[in-house]
Structure formats: C-alpha cells, structure tokens
C-alpha cells in the first residue's frame, strides 16, 4: 500500500525550527479493533491551506479531529508548531487540552452554535470564559468579527433565526475570536445547499488569503483546487495520495484516487 507520507525530518525537540504549523506523526485511531486512521503522518506548513478529500469512512474527519484532540489518537502524536500536544504522558490534562484548543480553532459540519445564545453571545462566551477577556473587549471583538463575515446585522439574532450559511459564518467568527493559529474545518458546507455553501466558502477563501493555516475536510473540489495548496486523498484510514491540488485532481496516480474522482466528476 502506498502511503505517501511526509516524514518528519526534525526531531520533536527542535520546536523553533519546525516548518510545520501542525503535524500528525504516525497517528492511529482505533474503534473497537477497527483502524479508522491507520498510522498516518501529515504535515501542514505555516499559512498553508490543506484540503483532505475522500469517501465516507475514509477516516478524514477522524484524522482532522485528532489535531485538537476531540479525538484522542490511539497511538502516534500531534505536534503544533513542532511541540507535541501531549507532553510526555499518554493521557492529556484538561489544562493542556484547553490551551491546545485556543491555538487550534474548529468549525463543524453542523455548526454547533449554542442555540440559547445570540450570535454575538456565541462569539463572546469563550473569549470571556476561556481567554479571560472583559465583556466589553469580547463584545467589541465579536462585532468586528461579525462584520468580517458580513453578519453585523445578525448580532442579536438567535441561531434559529439565521440560515445555515449564516450560522456557519457565525461559527467561523466564534472560532476566530480566540485568535487561533490554525483552523480546522470538518465538512463546513456539507449541510448547506450550494448557494449557502458558496457564502461560507467565500469567508474561508478570505481567511486563507489572510494567511491562516487551515486544514479542511471537504467535498468541494473547486474550493480544494482553487484555495488549497496541498491536497490529501484518504481512503480506508490511510493517505493514498497527496500533493499539489491540480495535479492530484487532474492526473491522479493511484487507482483508488482515480476511481473516487471519476465518481465525483461523474455526478
């Protein structure tokens, strides 16, 4: 099996020189004996947009979720800016995880906004409770971010009063409020119709242009080709093929990649 891996050249101690903002080293995730992610290594350079594509059950979302330890790897480790997320021991401490998640933001397929809070309150909560910002500062920052995603008018609306596309943009603003260095996106447009998906992708495109390091699990091939600098194709828990998006999408080398892309393009 051809597992195209970017082998880590630097030892974990050389934190300052790491060329990766985020890196998975030999990550395996096992569910009841089944390896959803099987010994995968993947590096994302600073400022890079990396898109992961692949069929359902390929382990792409599971891999993504190991980067902020929403999914605990069974073995292997995650490095952020060259430093292991779990120093030493196997079991991460809550404080370590909280610190990690302030550096690595995440957006979900189903948005997961807090329905009992307004858009602005959604964006303020973690600023005040995780970062310890004052309410005024958090509100100010929240308004600014809502403006950035084009939703300043929705500041006092509940999520249920917003479209799916608007909810996802609020969720992006909520994650950005913590000033993360890396953003994870888990199929951010899969629950949206194409029109609403487009407005979310526009925000993500702007975010990529601003230099944010992004890891995006997606089925949006155009976005992957236009915006991503690094494309990863996963199947059956391993990276089958990766590289420059255009070359992977237009002239895939592996049979499994060809089969997947034929199915996607045939629709």
């Amino acid at each position: 099996m051809n597992v195209a891996m970017q082998q880590s050249t630097s030892p974990p101690t050389a934190a300052a020189e790491s060329r990766y903002a985020a890196e998975a080293q030999n990550v395996t995730v096992e569910f009841h004996g089944h390896k959803a992610v099987d010994n995968v290594s993947l590096g994302i350079a600073k400022g890079e947009v990396c898109a992961i594509i692949g069929p359902s059950g390929s382990g792409k979302s599971t891999l993504l979720r190991t980067f902020n330890h929403l999914q605990e790897p069974t073995s292997g480790q995650i490095l952020i800016n060259g430093r292991p997320t779990v120093p030493g021991s196997r079991k991460p401490k809550p404080a370590d995880l909280m610190q990690l998640r302030r550096t690595v933001g995440m957006c979900f397929q189903s948005f997961n906004l807090f329905p009992h809070l307004t858009a602005l309150e959604n964006i303020m909560l973690a600023q005040t409770k995780a970062l310890g910002r004052s309410k005024d500062e958090a509100r100010e920052r929240g308004r600014h971010l809502l403006e950035r995603v084009g939703l300043e008018a929705k500041a006092n609306a509940r999520p249920s009063q917003c479209s799916g596309g608007q909810q996802q943009r609020i969720a992006i603003a909520r994650a950005l409020a913590l000033d993360p260095e890396i953003m994870l996106f888990d199929e951010p447009t899969s629950a949206l119709d194409p029109e609403l998906g487009a407005e979310v992708l526009a925000v993500m495109r702007e975010l990529a242009d601003s230099g944010m390091t992004m890891l995006v699990v997606t089925h949006e091939m155009n976005f992957a080709e236009d915006v991503a600098e690094h494309l990863v194709f996963m199947a059956d828990g391993v990276i089958v093929e990766q590289g420059d998006p255009s070359s992977v999408l237009r002239s895939p080398q592996q049979e499994r990649t060809q089969k997947f892309l034929r199915a996607v393009n045939g629709r």
Partner: peptide
Amino acid sequence: GQREAGHALGLPRTVIFLRV
C-alpha cells in the same frame, strides 16, 4: 455537538456544563 463545540472552544468543563 454542543459539548464538542464547547471543548473545541477551549472552555473549562464547568463552563460547558453551566453555560452550554
């Protein structure tokens, strides 16, 4: 997903429980 979103935002467990 609500609990997950709370964790992903780096919120302490007590805040996730009481506020989310």
